[in-house]
Design a binder for these strands. Structure first.
Length: 811
RNA sequence: GCCGAUGUGGUGGAAUAGGCAGACGCAAGGGACUUAAAAUCCCUCGAACGAGAGUUCGUACCGGUUCAAGUCCGGUCAUCGGCACCA
């Protein structure tokens, strides 16, 4: 079959018949199947896109044949850093390169032959989309969920630009090789931490992979502990968070993160230490959080010269700076208990600080650092208490003293959404000298991203240099004002896109509750697990925030989530230009066609695992389709005369068919495509075997062939349509129902059991349906091989697993 | 480093809720058809020992629970994903 022309022919028909357009009349049967949209960084679709979209489309088509009205849209996550970097390198404007890439990718996606509803396409870089991203920002601002604060960014002093982590790997600027510094900048944040508790507890409500939920859970990182305030000699309080208040009597010093706001004050109070402090702060600014948290990293720090007062013992304890304390976690300060914390122990040992044991291991010698629970010693009135008792008692005591108390802390940090970049949605805020920060009125949206902008790095956000964009009137006082020069993190665009698809052309609103109530949440969402903690958490947060503003009536955006695996290069490494191991799907699609390529992706890999690319099996998939075609064409020559009854041969074929249907229905539901295709192959093998019989039941056989075409339709849609037409059918096979399971065909008169003697397999026996356990045991014992293995010994115990095995324990 | 996964023949991968390890393929070897090749069809295919019937071993490694472990538990090693400005 010439798949190229066949594919073009059917794609044109589907398009003409609007077969893939969601039919609103059937909205009560809707199933929203969504794949993560594409990021148009390269000009072509890569294997990863195919692997995400091809098999998922098979799922969608399968559900359609099961009677669902499937909504499967596609679009482009079009803003982002790579287009801007490409522009800086080549001078090609991000808008131009992005639009060009989108055009190519869209054509390739259409050629894939997936049932995407292109009438609902969205591109996040277009005004009619980012207008609503800006609207979303304004709603969050109104609700008090968007605020400004200082935050650290990677700064290249030579390029005078903010760098993404990716561009600052190893602390070196990828552009010029300079050492990257961490610098404070005022940025917009979304208060995702307000939703920490619900984001955690609602994980129970959603059908997501357990590992993803666990990752989110750990990312949110709820820990119960205690806040403790140490008075500082400057008059300020140093608040620390600890999960181990039971060790508080072991505190011999306090550590601040080098970025802690109190550092400047301490420096003033102790000018003799200022130089050392400055040097250390500079040193710390060169390391990233991952390195700083590494327990393998050499502990470093500096004494500030200042002291704090222990809230319970009233002793003076020195205040240190150390980079193993992060300003972004907890309070940015810790109480150091050298005897019972690995890092504190290493630090105290290095700097010769005292180590006071306050926990004793139960029933054994205590070796320091001892970080488990034990019995309190050297802790005054709390001596003798165990971990839980002590944590409770000390927290209560601190509350009474007004020096702290129980506290729940989250590792989750607020979401930084400002980017000092050009290619993104402008932040719809205005800075007025008189009125301060003023939101752009909704009627003035979108704040358009100008085209003629110098986006090469020059020390500030690219938009800051565009006078036409920057200067504006204050919406409140009408005076001179300036726009916010930053753009939004692209994760903001992708945090709500699923809401836009059902009404992609609404130019009055981002979305409406009326439509959202019917079309959303997404029933099945498919995409990579690398998004587990960021995109997927952000989308959940935005959904909950919109719900609380009254725009939505559900709690979670994605009811069910599936992660496809990653297709690696043939060498087992991640595909990348630098590895030189990138496989282009185009070559294979050209040679074999889109159906063969997607069928191979489904058959050759475990969907959720992925694995190294190999084209060994792709030919076999093409051959498999050829065999089907020959079988179908040959079946047309059968005439209906001759046998009409159901002999053993017909029953066997019927069994294989129904076995395949039963398993495919189950397996496709859980995205186990490789086993589904295996069942199809078994069925084709059985058809082929039946076909060699001298006399056939042609009526039955032709019905089996028609079922085969229906069965394969979601897996190879163009191919199935063509076969359906070859069989003289006038309809689209994709509009047919998936063949129904006939349970009766699966009932066998006898089942084979394995018989074990003392857990070793000795024989196989056939057991008729409906025998009792006693009868099965008698049958097993009667088997000559079993009898030989039993060697005259008696049965002590008999374990029978229905339809599987008999285990005779003899002795 | 921390969090989360994964590890099964020459190879991609199967194995429902702890119940016959290796489904379905690929590669390889042998055969049929053919002047020949391609295509197609048939057979063999985890390892060791054995003439054979068969026996023993075998799911990264070490140990445990169980009548029974690829699957559960404890530990080790290796690889992969994420770590908050790649998306």
């Amino acid at each position: 079959m010439d798949m190229k022309s066949v594919e073009a022919k059917w794609q044109a028909k589907w398009e003409k018949n609007k077969q893939n357009v969601f039919n609103k009349k059937n909205v009560d049967k809707k199933l929203y199947v969504l794949e993560m949209f594409s990021y148009p960084s390269g000009a072509n679709l890569h294997v990863g896109h195919w692997y995400n979209y091809g098999p998922t489309d098979t799922y969608a088509r399968f559900k359609k044949m099961q009677g669902y009205e499937v909504f499967q849209p596609m679009g482009f996550d079009a803003f982002g850093l790579p287009a801007e970097n490409y522009a800086i390198k080549t001078g090609i404007h991000p808008k131009d390169s992005t639009e060009k890439n989108i055009a190519t990718m869209e054509r390739q996606l259409r050629n894939m032959g997936a049932m995407f509803d292109w009438t609902a396409e969205i591109k996040t870089c277009e005004e009619n989309y980012y207008k609503w991203t800006q609207w979303l920002f304004l709603q969050l601002y109104k609700k008090g969920l968007a605020y400004r604060k200082e935050a650290l960014v990677n700064w290249c002093p030579s390029c005078e630009t903010v760098l993404a982590n990716e561009q600052a790997e190893g602390g070196i600027c990828e552009r010029c090789g300079s050492t990257v510094l961490r610098k404070d900048m005022t940025q917009w944040f979304f208060k995702i931490t307000d939703y920490a508790e619900e984001l955690l507890s609602d994980l129970d409500k959603i059908d997501w992979p357990e590992k993803t939920k666990l990752m989110q859970k750990n990312w949110i990182g709820r820990s119960t502990g205690c806040e403790i305030r140490f008075a500082c000699e400057t008059g300020d309080d140093i608040t620390v968070f600890t999960t181990r208040p039971d060790t508080v009597f072991g505190v011999n010093y306090v550590v601040l993160a080098p970025e802690h706001p109190l550092v400047d004050k301490l420096k003033e109070a102790h000018p003799e230490q200022a130089e050392a402090i400055d040097a250390y702060v500079r040193y710390a600014s060169e390391a990233n959080d991952i390195d700083r948290l590494s327990t393998a990293r050499e502990k470093t720090g500096v004494f500030t010269g200042a002291y704090a007062i222990h809230p319970l013992t009233e002793k003076k304890v020195p205040i240190y700076l150390a980079d193993y304390v992060l300003y972004s976690y907890g309070t940015g300060a810790v109480m150091a208990v050298a005897a019972h914390d690995e890092r504190d122990y290493a630090f105290a040992t290095k700097y010769g600080l005292p180590i006071t044991q306050v926990i004793q291991k139960v029933g054994d010698e205590t070796i320091l650092p001892y970080c488990e629970d034990g019995i309190l010693v050297n802790s005054g009135e709390f001596d003798g208490l165990s971990g839980d008792e002590a944590r409770d008692a000390i927290a209560v005591h601190l509350t009474k003293l007004g020096k702290g108390g129980k506290k729940i802390n989250y590792r989750l940090r607020d979401w930084s959404v400002s980017r000092q970049r050009y290619w993104g949605a402008p932040i719809p805020m205005i800075h007025c000298e008189k009125c301060g920060v003023v939101p752009v009125p909704e009627k003035d949206l979108p704040v358009k991203l100008p085209y003629d902008v110098e986006f090469r790095p020059n020390g500030r956000s690219p938009l800051a240099g565009h006078a036409g964009f920057m200067y504006c009137r204050c919406p409140q006082c009408g005076g001179k004002a300036q726009r916010d020069p930053d753009t939004l993190d692209t994760f903001v665009c992708s945090s709500w896109y699923y809401l836009r698809y059902p009404e992609a052309h609404n130019d009055k609103q981002a979305f409406t509750a009326e439509v959202a109530d019917k079309m959303t949440p997404v029933d099945v969402y498919v995409g990579g697990s690398e998004h587990a903690c960021m995109h997927l958490l952000y989308a959940r947060f935005i959904t909950k925030a919109l719900r609380d503003m009254g725009y939505l009536h559900f709690d979670e955006p994605f009811k069910r989530l599936i992660h496809q695996g990653i297709i690696l290069g043939p060498d087992g490494n991640r595909m990348s230009k630098s590895h030189g191991n990138v496989i282009s799907p185009d070559k294979y699609v050209d040679e074999y066609g889109s159906d063969v390529f997607r069928l191979y992706l489904m058959f050759g890999f475990s969907y959720t695992e992925g694995g190294p690319w190999s084209d060994d099996g792709i030919k076999s998939v093409a051959k498999f389709m050829d065999r089907i075609e020959r079988l179908v064409r040959k079946s047309l020559e059968e005439n209906a005369e001759g046998y009409n009854e159901m002999r053993t041969a017909e029953k066997e074929l019927d069994y294989v068919k129904n076995y395949a249907i039963k398993n495919i229905v189950r397996d496709v539901e859980v995205f186990s495509f490789n086993t589904s295709v295996a069942r199809l192959m078994e069925y084709v093998n059985a058809l082929q075997k039946y076909d060699t019989l001298p006399e056939k039941n042609a009526t039955f056989y032709n019905a089996c062939i028609a079922d085969l075409i229906r069965m394969i339709a979601p897996f190879a849609p163009h191919f199935a349509e063509e076969l359906w037409e070859i069989c003289g059918k006038k309809t689209s096979v994709l509009e047919e129902s998936y063949p129904a399971l006939d349970e009766k065909a699966l009932v066998k008169a006898e089942t084979e059991y394995a018989v074990q003697v003392n857990s070793k397999i000795k024989a196989k026996i056939m057991v008729a349906e409906g025998l009792s356990d006693e009868e099965i045991q008698a049958l097993a014992v009667a088997n000559p091989e079993v009898a030989a293995a039993m060697d005259g010994k008696s049965v002590k115990k008999c374990i029978i697993v229905k339809n599987r095995l008999v285990n005779l324990i003899v002795g």
